[in-house]
Computed example of a mutant assay.
Amino acid sequence: MNPWSTALAVVLLAAVSFALVARLGAERPWLQPWAIVRARVQLASLSVFRAGIITEPALVAAFLLVMVIAATWVVGTRLELARRRLPVIALVVAGAAAAPPGSSSGLPSPYRGRP
């Protein structure tokens, strides 16, 4: 997918999101399109960053640790969990990250049937 078609898809998704949320009468309908654009920028910058570290196993491990900590913090904050519950959340996030794709979803996995 080239950058222009990606940009067009993001703009279209943001416009449709804004229209639907505004039609539903949400108090701040611009938050959904803003989240879509922000997520796209974050994912693009993350992919550029990952391309630079993917060749070093130690950097990959450090990156995964940072991602688990960030995901745990987001879940704990959004669910307003007590800090004592964060290690359990971190274990769940790390376990999900370690699971091969499709292993628990019932979807075909590229890893099935390989030794």
Rank of each mutant, 00 (worst) to 15 (best):
R50D: 13
R114A: 13
L107D: 13
Y111E: 10
L20K: 11
L12I: 08
W30I: 14
I36G: 01
Q32C: 04
I36C: 00
T72Y: 05
A14I: 02
G25P: 10
I36D: 02
F49N: 06
L24A: 15
R23M: 13
T6A: 09
A96N: 11
L59Q: 15
G76E: 08
I54Q: 14
A51E: 07
V48A: 05
L46Y: 12
L8S: 12
V93N: 05
A90V: 02
G106Q: 10
T72I: 07
V37L: 03
P115Y: 05
A90W: 00
P101E: 11
A61G: 00
A70W: 07
R114N: 09
T55H: 14
V88I: 12
L46Q: 13
L24W: 12
P33A: 03
A44P: 00
T55V: 13
A71V: 02
A99P: 05
T6G: 01
G113R: 04
P115G: 09
P29K: 07
V21G: 06
S45C: 07
R84C: 02
R38I: 00
A58C: 01
A9I: 05
P100F: 07
P57W: 02
L64V: 02
A26Y: 10
L65Y: 01
A15W: 08
P57G: 04
P110E: 12
I69K: 04
A44H: 04
A44G: 06
V88D: 08
M1G: 08
S47T: 06
L65Q: 06
R50T: 14
T72H: 06
S103Y: 12
L65R: 07
V16Q: 02
A7E: 02
P115S: 12
P57N: 04
L46C: 03
A44R: 04
A70R: 11
R112A: 15
T55N: 11
L91H: 05
G52C: 06
A44Y: 06
W30D: 11
W73Q: 07
G25K: 12
A97F: 15
I54S: 15
M67P: 01
L107S: 13
A22P: 07
G95D: 09
G106N: 09
L12N: 05
A14G: 11
A70F: 10
V37F: 01
R114H: 13
G25L: 13
L59A: 15
A61Y: 00
S45D: 05
F18N: 00
S47Q: 08
G106T: 11
L107Q: 14
V48T: 03
P57Q: 04
S109Q: 07
V68K: 06
M67Q: 15
A94E: 03
L86M: 08
S45T: 10
V74L: 14
G76M: 09
A96Q: 11
W30C: 07
L79S: 08
A82H: 14
W34E: 09
G52F: 14
R78N: 10
S105I: 10
F18Y: 15
W30Y: 14
V37D: 00
M67V: 14
A9D: 10
Y111C: 06
A90Q: 00
P57T: 03
P87N: 06
R84P: 01
G25W: 12
G95Q: 09
A58K: 06
L20G: 12
P101M: 09
G25S: 14
R23F: 14
A71G: 01
V66I: 11
P3N: 00
F18C: 01
S17G: 15
S104I: 13
